[in-house]
């Protein structure tokens, strides 16, 4: 089995600059060698996913333009091997189920060490 030593790419999708900064900072503390791309809306995210083929993605829900859940669904249907985490403060059952239905998980905002640990765990340990 090949050892996975390649540098990983992460796409951060969030319309809030502060939120992107938060995620980037927290992730880089844990994974300093990751390459990070940022998108400010779902449309940009879809384009970046095509161009950069990231391994992982974090997705906000409420953004101008198409919703994060719709963008996530579209990206995952094209790249089913990508690991996607949806960040939301609104963790109602319906949202959890929707995320699960297209092979993603919901992680509660705010972005903290704890939520980033959950995210990284999902990225690297889920099958």
């Amino acid at each position: 089995m090949p050892v996975d030593s390649s540098i990983k790419k992460l796409l951060i999708v969030d319309d809030s600059k502060v939120s992107r900064m938060l995620i980037r900072t927290h992730i880089l503390v844990q994974r300093p060698d990751w390459v990070i791309f940022e998108a400010v809306c779902g449309e940009d995210a879809i384009e970046l996913a095509d161009n950069e083929r990231p391994d992982y993605c974090t997705m906000d829900i409420n953004m101008p333009g198409i919703s994060g859940t719709d963008a996530a669904e579209r990206i995952l249907s094209k790249y089913p091997l990508m690991k996607m985490v949806i960040f939301s403060a609104n963790i109602q059952e319906t949202h959890k189920n929707r995320a699960r239905s297209f092979g993603s998980i919901l992680v509660a905002k705010p972005v903290t060490e704890k939520s980033i640990a959950l995210t990284l765990d999902y990225f690297t340990n889920s099958k």
Partner: peptide, 13 residues
């Protein structure tokens, strides 16, 4: 805006 959108999400829950 980010802080309040998190607050709004919690309120919605």
């Amino acid at each position: 805006a980010e802080i309040f959108s998190i607050g709004a999400g919690r309120a919605a829950l």
